[in-house]
């Protein structure tokens, strides 16, 4: 298993890539995000599975994003994601608004290698109106009229996330963050940063194995302790709410945002 540096990992995510990212509670690779900003990544198509927060906001603020596909971008208890809001108002990113289960279902279609997934809901919403790629058909299994939405498969070029533990073979333990498994299954390449790398084999550990992404799906791993900072990581680190509140304030304008990015470029211990 190639074990690489965070910087190298960011270098291997090319400009223009469609990158799947997890919600703020589920192992957000913020050390790698800082490295992407550091290498001036451009034209990324972010697909939040199904929402994002500080990660999308940082990448948008730093000019790395062309397309944002999501069911929401929020700093949760800290308020609005300022750079996201600004970019939407300015029209500087292409927005693909959706709803959480549509993104999850689309990703599951990608995982299964099928062209689409049907889903209830959406009909009569303006979300559907602005998503020409979402189609309505009449349920062919029904005797009566039954319109239902079809969601195209989402096949990310890259899944990017942070996990608590990997082993030397490249197996990655994700605990209860199951959406990371779907992301890895659906994406063409999966890059993972981890807190720790163990010499044990996670696939041979009966307790760990069911919550382990097999190395087969994992392109490369970089060790990044506190790699989600200032977000937390379940079972490992609490969120740094003081720093998240500082970010929320800084994200309200471009200058304060740039200062925050510069000040935190080296992460928690920088």
């Amino acid at each position: 298993m190639p074990e690489i540096s965070v910087k190298e990992l960011a270098n291997r995510i090319p400009d223009g890539a469609k990158v799947a990212i997890p919600p703020s509670r589920s192992g957000v690779a913020l050390a790698a995000t800082r490295a992407l900003i550091g290498r001036k990544a451009r034209n990324l198509h972010l697909v939040a599975i199904p929402t994002s927060g500080i990660q999308a906001d940082m990448l948008i603020g730093a000019g790395c994003v062309a397309v944002m596909e999501c069911a929401g971008v929020t700093l949760d208890e800290h308020g609005q994601a300022g750079r996201f809001v600004e970019a939407v108002k300015a029209g500087s990113i292409t927005l693909r608004d959706s709803t959480c289960p549509a993104l999850v279902s689309g990703l599951q279609a990608g995982e299964k290698g099928i062209p689409f997934m049907p889903m209830r809901g959406l009909i009569g919403s303006d979300l559907l109106k602005y998503r020409p790629d979402y189609r309505v058909i009449d349920n062919p299994m029904s005797d009566g009229p039954d319109p239902i939405v079809l969601l195209p498969a989402i096949t990310p070029d890259i899944a990017l996330f942070h996990a608590p533990l990997a082993d030397r073979h490249g197996n990655v333990w994700i605990g209860t963050m199951r959406e990371l498994m779907t992301m890895a299954h659906a994406a063409r390449q999966t890059f993972v940063t981890v807190e720790e790398i163990t010499d044990a084999d996670l696939m041979w550990d009966e307790l760990r194995a069911p919550a382990t992404i097999p190395a087969l799906y994992v392109t490369a791993i970089a060790q990044a302790p506190h790699g989600t900072w200032p977000l937390g990581l379940q079972g490992c680190h609490e969120p740094d709410n003081t720093e998240l509140a500082r970010y929320a304030r800084a994200s309200k304008n471009a200058d304060d945002f740039a200062s925050w990015i510069a000040r935190t470029a080296n992460g928690k211990n920088g």
């Binding site: 999501c70 069911a71 929401g72 971008v73 929020t74 927005l95 549509a102 209830r120 979300l127």
Partner: peptide, 21 residues
């Protein structure tokens, strides 16, 4: 007017499915 609203909020989250079901 969508998408360049003069006020933009976070997004629709799960509403466009859960509200129906």
């Amino acid at each position: 007017d969508y998408p360049r609203h003069h006020v933009r909020w976070s997004g629709s989250f799960g509403s466009a499915m859960l509200y129906y079901l």
